[in-house]
Design a protein around this nucleic acid. Structure first.
Lengths: 339, 339
DNA sequence: CACATTTCCAAAAACGTTTTCGGAAACGCG
DNA sequence: CGCGTTTCCGAAAACGTTTTTGGAAATGTG
């Protein structure tokens, strides 16, 4: 079996408390005994039991990534993975214990955020995938445990948010389309009341108004962010408003852009020759589609890293809860043609 | 703060042991007191601290997914995510506590598998991403904790392996190409000595020999499973052996297929009209490329689910360690043309 | 009714750590 | 040398559970 602190203590001829002090680099121990204990520990291949450590210790070095709806949507694999990579990167660099938990709307009602933290003895979490109707909104706000949400504004004393300036980013994306000469632009939108939808819509409108452009009601196509919906809805749009002279589709996500392109191709059009299309998110598929999709990269891995960073600082009392707005970048590829 | 078992005991007027018995549905407690305790617990919103539970309890209900090299390669996001989804699915259905750990070749030397399990009090793990030179090979074999590897044969009393019949699958894929009339087929291969490469090579050769086909040395293109390598190597191949009359590229992974298609397009060829290409893995990008790529789907999510399942059964003593071969399926799409 | 058995529960040990408390030894200073 | 500090470390409490042990009460049996 694996050696415990008791075994090390016995072997080194000291008490367990002393071994603990040696292992944790405390001050009230002589250099000589520390050396000796460390040596013995190494020889015995001793590793502290993190569970016991976590139970006993006052301040926990464990954080978590909480993914809501992970098991439900098949779409955004990249997003979650890249986010986690960022978080894990930070955790490893700072020797934090990190784990991942999956929740959904149902489990959110059964167990508060604070309870989840308590159950697993974690100091805080980076939370991704919350819908704005989710019970966790209240749960987080009321919680004493710090947390960092991604792309969703919660409020509360202990909750930070890491996001991009989606309004500005979408404005920029729209402006790019306009700069390429597009004047009649259809908007492929996400769920009507989702926070991200609202922000991106605002960005689009800002750019259009600034350039004296109109966005007729019939030109906005609503979906639930699902590729297949974009596919069928755009197909319908082409049938109904094909003669309206639209030259470009401004999509609120990359998956919607992919669906849009599929619909266009199916209807016999070429992208970008007949219609231009842009996406939003910067998931890696956009590099491999035909044509490669012009999009806004959210740098999701950095977001994960910075979220973990901020969480850590909140836990350690280095930084207070705050909102962090990370830079985005317009990625120009092949799905837009100058007209 | 959150209620502990002590608080519940006090509130219900019983001892902590009794509360524990009530919560865990043990037999030696009267139905009446159980009811009462459960009620009190519910009212107080009591949730057992899983860390304490895990420390105290003899048999742990925690399993883990261990990802090796997670932070290194940017390529196979899908793979890991889908695998995890499968594992988490099983865990949630069976009320297991599941967590995820990231290791790499370096951390493998520092800490054995058994130590990692001990540190986190986990009963066993599903392990993905091991390279055949990794230190964990020995570590797993010597370990007392059960584990399930994915796609990699380790050996040892407590280690199972969940995989596909890659030889048969690649044979099938090759046969499909042959059935479509292709006789001169180039092979875009992965790392020379990797287990998966060897198996897939064998499958390809089986099909070719059976059909009386040859595979000249110059027609096998080696890569490290990286898309960009496929891109450049195939480009080189076209320059050097463009006149050899090759009509199809048999790729050992989907990413290689994507790279191959890019190279072909860059060189002015159309897929599948000028050259046919097939991939292997079934990652979701292949559905969105142009053309959509014909491939072999490994059903990675099922693999995750079954791996967790087998792990659980090993822990509970229901099934012994064993190798599980899951079905694959040929997914015919648009990247192959009949010649 | 006496005794054996069963049912139920309280008390306490155990899990492997950290942390607090207190005291012995070493040291410094007059 | 005596006394106050400081340095170092052992003992024990604490973290929140589960599990073992033992015994009182309830039940069954003759």
């Amino acid at each position: 079996m694996t050696a415990t602190i008791q075994d090390v203590a016995r072997a080194a001829g000291v008490s367990v408390g002393t071994v603990s002090r040696a292992m944790n680099d405390y001050s009230d121990i002589s250099a000589k005994t520390r050396e000796r204990i460390l040596e013995v520990a190494k020889e015995m291949n001793y590793r502290p039991n993190l569970v016991a450590k976590s139970l006993s210790s006052k301040h926990s070095r464990s954080i978590a990534v909480i993914l809501s709806g992970f098991l439900e949507d098949v779409m955004f694999n990249d997003f979650e993975t890249m986010l986690m990579k960022g978080c894990y990167q930070f955790a490893i660099e700072h020797d934090l214990d990190i784990s991942m938990y999956v929740i959904n709307t149902k489990t959110q009602t059964e167990k508060s955020y604070e309870q989840l933290c308590y159950e697993h003895n974690i100091a805080g979490a980076v939370i991704f995938g919350l819908k704005n109707t989710d019970p966790y909104f209240k749960s987080l706000e009321e919680s004493n445990k710090p947390c960092v949400t991604i792309d969703v504004e919660v409020g509360g004393e202990n909750v930070s948010n890491v996001t991009n300036d989606h309004v500005a980013a979408f404005d920029e994306l729209t402006q790019y389309l306009i700069d390429q000469g597009h004047k009649r632009i259809a908007l492929v939108s996400g769920r009507k009341n989702a926070a991200v939808t609202v922000q991106r819509f605002e960005g689009a409108m800002n750019a259009m108004k600034r350039n004296g452009l109109e966005l007729p009601k019939e030109w906005v196509i609503y979906t639930n962010f699902l590729k297949d919906e974009a596919d069928s809805e755009v197909e319908k749009f082409l049938k109904e408003h094909g003669e309206a002279g639209v030259t470009a589709f401004l999509c609120m996500s990359d998956m919607l852009a992919i669906g849009t392109i599929e619909a266009l191709k199916k209807s016999g059009y070429r992208v970008p020759d007949d219609y231009s299309v842009v996406g939003y998110d910067g998931i890696y598929v956009t590099e491999h589609t035909d044509p490669k999709i012009t999009t806004v990269d959210q740098n999701i891995k950095d977001k994960g890293y910075e979220a973990a960073h901020l969480l850590y600082d909140m836990i350690e009392g280095i930084r207070p809860a705050q909102d962090l707005i990370l830079p985005h970048s317009l990625v120009i590829r092949d799905s837009v043609k100058k007209v």
